[in-house]
């Protein structure tokens, strides 16, 4: 639904402002060039997305992904407290975080949903509000990425000298973003 609103606003604003600024010819022309650029963009990033899906599959089958998920246990304990004592929840949260770290959002969703379902069950059993579920969602919206491969692909296609040189800056911004999200959740939860 929200996407419908976004699209209507974008197209409506294009038509109205194009008419007002007298650039409606350019707006009309953009409908063709925009669609063409979309194919170009997909070509730019498709190979990299496939490459990293392939590498992730190797990591899944060799058990490396599970190992990374296990390494994340202390972080999960810190964030989720008593909910981290549940083996199943902990495993799914670990998988979800590991996929997010590798910049594979689409691979993170299935494990994230399983983790959310389990956390929801646990909070119902305890008769508590699903704060742990909210926390998991917030961590997923904050996107802690180690390897922003798609963006690196876009930079490479535009001729960047070192497409991955943004890594340290992405890490710093991601970490601050997650910390702000978690802190904001704690503060807003405390008010009620």
């Amino acid at each position: 639904m929200i996407m419908t609103v976004v699209i209507v606003i974008m197209l409506g604003a294009s038509l109205i402002f194009g008419a007002v600024t007298g650039q409606i010819a350019q707006v009309s022309q953009a409908t063709v060039s925009g669609a063409k650029e979309a194919v170009q963009l997909l070509l730019n990033i498709c190979g990299t997305i496939c490459l990293w899906s392939g590498l992730l599959e190797i990591m899944n089958r060799s058990g490396l992904a599970a190992k990374i998920a296990k390494l994340l246990r202390p972080v999960i304990k810190l964030l989720f407290g008593k909910y981290a004592q549940d083996e199943e929840a902990c495993r799914y949260i670990g998988q979800n975080m590991a996929s997010n770290l590798l910049g594979l959002g689409s691979a993170a969703t299935p494990s994230g949903l399983k983790a959310a379902k389990r956390l929801n069950q646990l909070s119902k059993q305890r008769g508590e509000s699903p704060h742990a579920v909210f926390l998991l969602i917030i961590i997923n919206t904050a996107s802690l990425q180690l390897l922003p491969t798609t963006i690196a692909a876009v930079r490479a296609a535009e001729g960047s000298a070192a497409p991955y040189d943004i890594l340290p800056a992405v890490w710093l911004s991601s970490i601050v973003s997650v910390l702000v999200g978690v802190t904001a959740a704690k503060l807003m939860r405390g008010k009620k």
């Binding site: 699209i7 974008m10 197209l11 604003a13 294009s14 038509l15 109205i16 402002f17 194009g18 600024t21 650039q23 409606i24 350019q26 707006v27 022309q29 953009a30 409908t31 060039s33 925009g34 669609a35 650029e37 979309a38 194919v39 963009l41 997909l42 990033i45 498709c46 997305i49 496939c50 689409s106």
Partner: peptide, 22 residues
């Protein structure tokens, strides 16, 4: 890639139109 293409096509077209409109 197939899954994200519709969003990219719709959005890049809309963004190009928005930019052209000023």
């Amino acid at each position: 890639c197939k899954g994200i293409f519709p969003a990219i096509l719709v959005m890049l077209t809309a963004v190009s139109m928005l930019r052209a409109s000023g």
